[in-house]
Structures are given as C-alpha cells and as structure tokens.
Amino acid sequence: MFRTSLRTRVIGAVALAAALPFAAVACGGDSGGDGDSIVIGTKFDQPGLGMRNPDGTMSGFDVDVATYVAGELGYTPEQIQWKEAPSAQRETLIQNGQVDFIAATYSITDSRKEKVDFAGPYLITGQSLLVRSDSNDINGPADLENNKILCSVSGSTPAQKIKDEFPRVQLQQYDTYSACIEALKNGAVDAVTTDEVILAGYAAQDPGAFKIVGEQFSEERYGIGLKKGDTELRTQINDALLKMEESGAWKEAFDKNLGPAGISAPNPPPLDN
C-alpha cells in the first residue's frame, strides 16, 4: 500500500465514477506493489454488504459504496486491494496503516472516534435478532434471559450493547457473524444479534431457514473509518458519499444488494460535519 499516492491522486473524473460497475467487483489483490493502488478494508462474510464470492470477486452494499468512493479518489476497481476487516481488528488495521479506509458495517461511536476518524454516515440501521424459522418464544432481547444463548461477534457494537443493557443474557461471541449463523443453524445457539441489514442478508442467503423477530433496539450509524487526523481524506470521502447519494447511485446500490432481502431503501442520512 502506498499512502502517498492516495494523498496526491486527483479526484476521479465524473465519467469514471458514472462507469463504475455495481455488479461484482473484481478483487484487486494482485495489483499491489506498483504505487498505484488503494487498500480498502471490508467484511468478507456478510452477504448483501461485504462478501468475497467463491470466484474471488467482491460484492455487497459496503463494497459498492467503497468502490464508488475509490473511483472519486481516482482509482479504478482493478486498483483496489480488498483486505478483510473483522470487527475486533478494524481500529488496529487503520492505526497500523494496513488499510487506507474501512467500509465494513462500521458503527460510528464515541469510543471508536478516540482512535480513528469517520466519514459519513452513509447508512443508518438498528440492532435486531435472528432466530430459526421454527422458533416461537423469542420476540426481543428480554426473552433471551430465559436460559437462551445469544451469539454475536467479539469487538462489535451489538455485543457490547447486550453486555451493557442485558447482562443476564448468555452471550456467546465468535470472530465472525458467519460462525454465529452456523451455530444458529445447528442449534448451538438460540439467536444471533447484530444490525438488521446484516441479519437480512443472511436470511436471504438461506431462504426459509431463519426469520428476524422483534423491533430494532438501537440506532447504528455506519461510517467509513480512516486514520485519525486525516482531515483531507475525510473531506474527500464525504464529498464522494454526497455525490453518490445525489446521483442516485446510492439507492441503486442499496436496492441491488439489500432489496432481495425485503428491505426498502431509506433516505440517505445527512453527513456529519
């Protein structure tokens, strides 16, 4: 990764941004080392948001947002190197300079803002619960206090919220949500909690196996994480997000990736100053 090239690149031309594909994005892992690439962190296991497909391509709403932003920074999809960014490692990846920015269902919180900066938000969602389709006794987090086992991911905002507000719930934590989904499928846990858009992606991937229950019980503001103090890059990313929203490309990406899960595109949230 060559951060100096990111600082000096001219904002991409309008024609380039308009031509960016919102289909599966080619993984640019082989283009590194030439001083002309950008490293972006995202999830590799979240269908509809950040997913590495069997053929090596990347797809999802976060991927499309990040690809659009990279285009506005002057990078083609082929110049993107995708790096997996598990929840518990995101701040470390940014602080160590292993990525230029991260778009990975990354909730903006005060504690994280002590370590990294955020552009955005580019999506607002809320925490919810996913259960097996034959489950009838879980309709909210309070129902989990009756000897149920709830799964979430280490280092995630949803896991911390359960610890803080529902301490009597038995919380099982894994490194990835896909591990939680597998545990739910085989009966090792009774429910999975994270943001509703993430749960919807998993439910859509395995029709009939799972269902989302209850109301959202938090507000999560997804932002793009970057190195603390990099005001120039933060401004450039915010400009790109605003352009994506105003051009209709934001809604197009949402509908393509999350529409199949039955979620209607909300209005894009206003960006933080």
Rank of each mutant, 00 (worst) to 15 (best):
I124T: 15
A119G: 09
D100C: 10
I102T: 11
A104V: 10
A119Q: 05
G97M: 10
D117L: 07
F101D: 00
A104G: 07
F101C: 00
G120C: 05
I102A: 02
K113E: 15
Y122C: 05
Y122M: 12
A119D: 07
I124P: 02
A103G: 12
Q127P: 13
T109F: 05
G97F: 11
Y106K: 01
D110M: 03
Y122P: 06
Y122R: 04
D110C: 02
N96E: 15
P121L: 03
G120H: 02
R112H: 06
A103T: 14
I124L: 12
D117T: 08
S111R: 06
E114P: 03
T125Q: 02
Q127I: 06
N96I: 08
Q95K: 07
T105H: 02
T109G: 05
V116R: 02
T109R: 04
K113M: 14
F101H: 02
Y122G: 02
Q127M: 13
R112W: 03
A119M: 13
I108G: 00
A103Q: 03
I108Q: 00
P121T: 04
K115V: 05
Q95C: 03
G120D: 06
F101P: 01
S107A: 13
T125E: 08
V116Q: 04
F101W: 08
T105N: 14
Q95N: 07
Q127W: 09
I102Q: 01
V116K: 03
Q95H: 04
T125D: 15
Q98E: 15
D100P: 10
T109S: 08
V116F: 12
D110T: 11
Q127K: 12
S107H: 06
Q127R: 12
R112D: 08
P121F: 07
Y122H: 15
Q127A: 15
I124M: 11
I108L: 04
R112F: 02
D100R: 01
T125I: 08
V99E: 14
S107K: 01
Q127S: 15
L123K: 01
D110I: 03
Q98I: 10
R112L: 07
I124D: 07
N96V: 08
F101Q: 00
Q95R: 05
K115W: 00
L123R: 00
D117F: 09
T125S: 13
Q95I: 14
F101K: 00
F118I: 12
D100E: 11
P121Y: 04
Q95M: 11
R112Q: 06
P121R: 00
G97N: 08
I102H: 01
F118Y: 11
V99Q: 15
I124K: 10
F118E: 05
S107T: 10
Y122I: 13
D100V: 10
K115S: 06
K113C: 12
Y122L: 12
